[in-house]
Amino acid sequence: MTGGSTHEIRPLRFGVVAPITTDMPAWRDQLRGLADSGFSTVLMPDVPQWQPAPGPALAVAATITGLRVGTWVYASPVRPAWITAWEAHSLSVLTEGRFEMGIGTGRPGIADQLRELGLPLPPEGQRWSQVRDVVAALRELDGPDRHTPVAMAVRGPKAQALAAELADTVTFVMPQIETRAATVQRVESFDNRRGAELALHVPVVGDSVAAFMAGPDTDPAAVRAADSLAFLPSDPAAAAEEIQRRREEIGFSYFVFGADAAGALAPVVAELAGR
Rank of each mutant, 00 (worst) to 15 (best):
P25M: 12
H201D: 15
A230T: 05
P108M: 05
R10N: 03
L232I: 07
A214N: 03
G251V: 04
N192P: 05
S189T: 13
G38C: 06
A88C: 06
H89W: 15
V187D: 10
L272T: 12
T95C: 06
L119E: 05
V256H: 00
L58A: 08
G263W: 09
L141R: 05
G66H: 12
H7D: 00
A153H: 09
L43T: 02
D260A: 14
V204K: 05
A259Q: 11
V150Q: 05
R193H: 12
T6K: 09
G206M: 10
G104M: 03
F255R: 06
P56R: 05
I177E: 10
G97F: 05
S5I: 11
I250V: 15
A81E: 10
E197R: 15
R194L: 10
I20P: 08
I243D: 08
R98L: 06
A53M: 12
V187I: 15
T95D: 10
E124F: 09
P236C: 06
Q113S: 10
A167Q: 11
S253V: 04
R146E: 13
V73A: 14
P80C: 07
M174F: 02
A111V: 13
P48T: 01
A225K: 08
R193T: 15
D46H: 08
E96K: 13
Q185K: 15
A237M: 04
